[in-house]
Design a protein around this nucleic acid. Structure first.
Lengths: 189, 189
DNA sequence: ACCTGAACACCGTTCAAGT
DNA sequence: ACCTGAACACCGTTCAAGT
C-alpha cells in the first residue's frame, strides 16, 4: 500500500466505461483525454496504451451506445423509437454516433435493426430512416442541452418549450420514410 | 509604410470572409481562431473585437452558407436539392449548419425555403424534411472527406465508392417526407 | 475604432523510461 | 503488461495597453 500514486492498472473496458460515464456528465465538447485520465487517476499518456487515439476511443463509446438497440421484427416506429432512446440515454449520444457512423463503411448496429424491421430489399429506406433519425435526434439533443445551459435567451422570453412537438415530427418522418400509413401496421400479435 | 506589422484594419465582414475561405481549405476541425488570425496577419485577440467568441463567428458562417438558398415556390425536391447544394458548397458546411441550427430557436433560412415550397400548414413536414436533409448531408459530407483522407481503409479493400447511391437515398427521403408520389408534381410550368 | 503582447488554463499525442 | 514524466505543438479567451 504505497501512499502516493497507486498502480491503477486498467484495461480497454475500464477506460471505455469511465469515458462513457464522463461523457454523460460533461458532454462531448468537454470529454478530453486528460479529463478521462484524471478520472482514472492516471497520466494522459497511459490512455494511449489502450487506444491508439481519441477517435478510436470515441468509436468504442459509439459502439457501446448503439449496442443496446434491440434487433427484432417489431414495427418500424417501435424500432426507430428504440434507436432514438438509445441515443438519448447518454449526453450528446446522438452527435457522437452521427459523427462516428459517418466514418464507417458497412452497416452499423442501428442500420441492422432497421433492416430487421423493414424486411430485406429495403436498404435504401433503412438508410434514409437512419439519416433522419440521426439528424432529428442530434438536433433535439443539442437543443435540449443548449436550453438548460441558459444559452438560449429567447426560450425564457417566449416561455415555450423548444422541444415541444418534436416527437410528432419524429413520428411523421419515420412513418413517411417507412412508407406505412397513419396507423401502425402490426405484422404479428 | 512601416516595414514591420502593418495596421491590418478589419471589420466583421472581412473576418467572416477570411474564416469562410479558411473553412473550405482546412475543414471545421482545424478552423481555429488562431489560424484565422494568422490568415489575417493579426493577433488572435484581435478577432474578439469583431466577434464575442468562436461560436458567434461560426454562427455567422452558417448564416452566410444558408443565405444562398433561394426561397421560391418550386417543387420540394428542387428546394431540398438547393439546400443540399448550399451545404456542399463549403467543406463541412452541413456539419456547421447542423450544429449552429440546433442552438437557434425560431426558423432558419432553410426552413423558410422549405415552407415556401410546401405551402403553409405544413411546418411539421418542413421541420422533418430539414432534419432529414441536415442528417443525410452531414453524413455524406463527412464520409466524402474521410474517404479522401485515407482514414477509410475498407474503401480501398472493397473498391467501392462509399458515396455511390446516396443521391437516390436523398431523393427517396425527400419525396417520402414531402408526401408526394414518385414523379415530381409541378405546380407551374 | 481596432490592434498588440502577455498571460491563463487548457488541448492531443509521442516517447523514453520505469515497474 | 501497463504506467510515469517530460516534452511538443497546439487551443479559446481575457485584458491592460497601445495607436
Amino acid at each position: 500500500m504505497s501512499p502516493d500514486h497507486n498502480p491503477a492498472r486498467h484495461d480497454r473496458d475500464s477506460v471505455a466505461r469511465a469515458a462513457l460515464a464522463l461523457l454523460d456528465e460533461v458532454g462531448l465538447a468537454d470529454l478530453s483525454m486528460r479529463r478521462i485520465a484524471a478520472r482514472l487517476e492516471v497520466q494522459p499518456s497511459a490512455l494511449y496504451w489502450h487506444f491508439a487515439n481519441k477517435q478510436e476511443l470515441l468509436a468504442e463509446l459509439a459502439d457501446r451506445i448503439t449496442a443496446r438497440i434491440p434487433v427484432t421484427d417489431d414495427d418500424v416506429l417501435t424500432t426507430a423509437r428504440s434507436i432514438r432512446d438509445a441515443l438519448f440515454a447518454y449526453r450528446d449520444g446522438a452527435e457522437l454516433v452521427l459523427s462516428t457512423y459517418a466514418l464507417r463503411l458497412g452497416s452499423s448496429h442501428a442500420q441492422i435493426a432497421l433492416e430487421a424491421s423493414l424486411g430485406p430489399q429495403s436498404t435504401d429506406r433503412a438508410t434514409a430512416l437512419l439519416h433522419f433519425i440521426l439528424g432529428h435526434t442530434t438536433l433535439a439533443q443539442l437543443r435540449m442541452h443548449a436550453e438548460s445551459h441558459g444559452a438560449a435567451a429567447a426560450a425564457a422570453a417566449e416561455e415555450i418549450d423548444p422541444t415541444a412537438g418534436l416527437d410528432s415530427v419524429f413520428d411523421l418522418g419515420v412513418v413517411a420514410i417507412a412508407g406505412i400509413s397513419a396507423s401502425q401496421p402490426r405484422d404479428r400479435a
